[in-house]
Structures are given as structure tokens and as C-alpha cells.
């Protein structure tokens, strides 16, 4: 059991931030790794990225968007409540080195995944430009944190309610037009964002890493639910990833596989909203 010690609604009741007791994971986790959690006995195993970890307090940060029953259920928990199972750290850590100039692009709740990675690139001595974006101002998360974790932060909203009116890719294109010293781009967000971001960066020939979030079950390489096609080969995102060369990923297949259980997700959500569990 893992007790929740802190809870904050970050964006219009759709994005939530927990601090949870998980001392062993807090001690070991590195940027880019994730956990799998199961809220209660009847719950499903869902992968969530850690927004941060603190070995001293033994707490890990979970930042999640309410997208279905499991995350809706998770959001009903309060400080003092416990999450039954948390497994981690899982996945390969981000390979961080000093490359020069790195651009970190986060979209939606992908910003939460991006944050510790951005911090790590800065700490490794890189000149870090960060671009974060959301549909609208109220959904924007971790602006201050991202500002501190980078040398230059740009913000976009799709509807123009805050920052630059447009997509993260619009800002990215401008930067890539202006400077030729960008060594690496890391893009994390909804699949369509990563797809278009990679299309763009391929034009400019800049290496781009993405962090994928397919459906997972065990997340230890045992089931293959999370298989993704990268460079024409099948990879297990949970153990081979979650980060891959963004120019090699088959995003269309990923989107379809993410939608495999839409019908069941609706059934689950309806039951949750009517019965409450």
C-alpha cells in the first residue's frame, strides 16, 4: 500500500498531481522511467510517468490526466488514502549527455513526463530550450517548473488564451529556422503531436527522441501488449523503451492500438459514473 501525502488539482479537474509514498522507487528511479499502478483489488494496471522523485522523503510525484475509469477512480483518492500496488521503476532511463543545445517539447500531460527529463538535460550542461503547449490556458501545467528546468521556455496554446497562439510545432519550426546548432529534440505528448513534430524535425534532419505510452499490462516484457513498430521492427515499449528514435516510429499503428478498448473503456466509465466504482 502506498499512502498519498499530497494532492493538487492542476488543470480544471482533469490533471491531478499526487505525492505518494514509495521509498524504494524514489531511491532508484531515473528520469524517463515510469511506474505501473493498480488502485485497488479490482483495478487494472496502468502505466504512469513520474513527474519527479525525492529519495530523502521517499515520495514520488504522479501527474496524470483523467482519461478513463482508472484515472477517474485515482482522482477520487485523497490525502491519507492509499494506492494498492505501485511497481517501478520501469523502462529504460533517458540517455542524458552533454550535447550542446537541446530542445524539449512537451504537449498536454506530456509536460509532466518532460519535466524531469528537461531538468536532467540542463543538469548535464546542455543549453536547454523548452516548448510546452496545451489546448487552452487552463490545461497548461508545470509552467514554473519548466521555466526553472530550462534556459529558455516558450509556451503555446491551441486557442491563443495564453502564450503563443498555435501549436508547439509552430514555435519549434521558428527556432529550427533561426539556429542550426540544435543537437537533439525530445518530444513528449499526444501521439498526433509527436507524429507531426517528428515529420517537422526530419525535414531539418535533427535527431528526435519521443516517449511512447501504449497500452501495457505487466510492463516487464512479459505480455507484448505494448508492442510498437520502430524502424520496421516490433519493440516492447515497456522494456525496450519508453523512448525511441521518433523518426522511426509507426505512429498510425500506435494510435490504433491505443484505441483497441474504446468500447470497453466506455462501459467502464459509464459504470463508474452511475455506480461509483
Amino acid at each position: 500500500m502506498h499512502k498519498i501525502t499530497y494532492k493538487r488539482e492542476m488543470a480544471e479537474k482533469t490533471v491531478c498531481h499526487f505525492k505518494v509514498e514509495a521509498p524504494r522507487i524514489a531511491r532508484k528511479a531515473k528520469p524517463g522511467q515510469f511506474v505501473v499502478l493498480k488502485v485497488n483489488e479490482t483495478g487494472e494496471r496502468i502505466p504512469l510517468t513520474m513527474g519527479g522523485t525525492d529519495p530523502a522523503t521517499g515520495l514520488i510525484d504522479l501527474i496524470f490526466q483523467v482519461v478513463g475509469k482508472s484515472t477517474a477512480l485515482l482522482r477520487t483518492l485523497n490525502v491519507g488514502d492509499s494506492i494498492q500496488d505501485i511497481i517501478g521503476p520501469l523502462g529504460k532511463p533517458t540517455h542524458v549527455e552533454n550535447l550542446g543545445t537541446v530542445i524539449c517539447v512537451g504537449g498536454g500531460t506530456g509536460v509532466a513526463v518532460m519535466y524531469p527529463i528537461t531538468k536532467a538535460y540542463k543538469e548535464a550542461g546542455n543549453n536547454v530550450i523548452a516548448i510546452i503547449g496545451s489546448r487552452t490556458k487552463d490545461l497548461l501545467i508545470l509552467e514554473d517548473e519548466m521555466k526553472a528546468a530550462s534556459h529558455d521556455l516558450r509556451v503555446t496554446t491551441d486557442d491563443g488564451t495564453y502564450g503563443v497562439h498555435g501549436f508547439v510545432t509552430d514555435v519549434l519550426r521558428k527556432i529550427l529556422d533561426e539556429r542550426k546548432d540544435v543537437k537533439l529534440i525530445v518530444g513528449i505528448g499526444p501521439v498526433p503531436m509527436m507524429k507531426f513534430l517528428c515529420k517537422l524535425t526530419k525535414e531539418y534532419g535533427v535527431k528526435t527522441m519521443v516517449s511512447l505510452n501504449p497500452i501495457m499490462v505487466d510492463a516487464t516484457g512479459m505480455c507484448g501488449a505494448c508492442r510498437v513498430t520502430v524502424g520496421g521492427k516490433t519493440k516492447f515499449c515497456c522494456v525496450d523503451g519508453p523512448e525511441f528514435d521518433g523518426h522511426e516510429v509507426d505512429y498510425d499503428e500506435l494510435v490504433k492500438r491505443q484505441r483497441a478498448y474504446l468500447t470497453e473503456e466506455k462501459v467502464s466509465m459509464e459504470k463508474f459514473t452511475t455506480v461509483g466504482r
Binding site: E44, E265, S268, K271
Partner: peptide, 14 residues
Amino acid sequence: MKAYMFPKYDTPIA
């Protein structure tokens, strides 16, 4: 995951 008891259990199965 006891998906055979979905939706009592949350894990779906085709």
C-alpha cells in the same frame, strides 16, 4: 487481472 469478470474488474479483454 480477472478480465473475464469485466466490468466488475477493470481490465478489458477482447
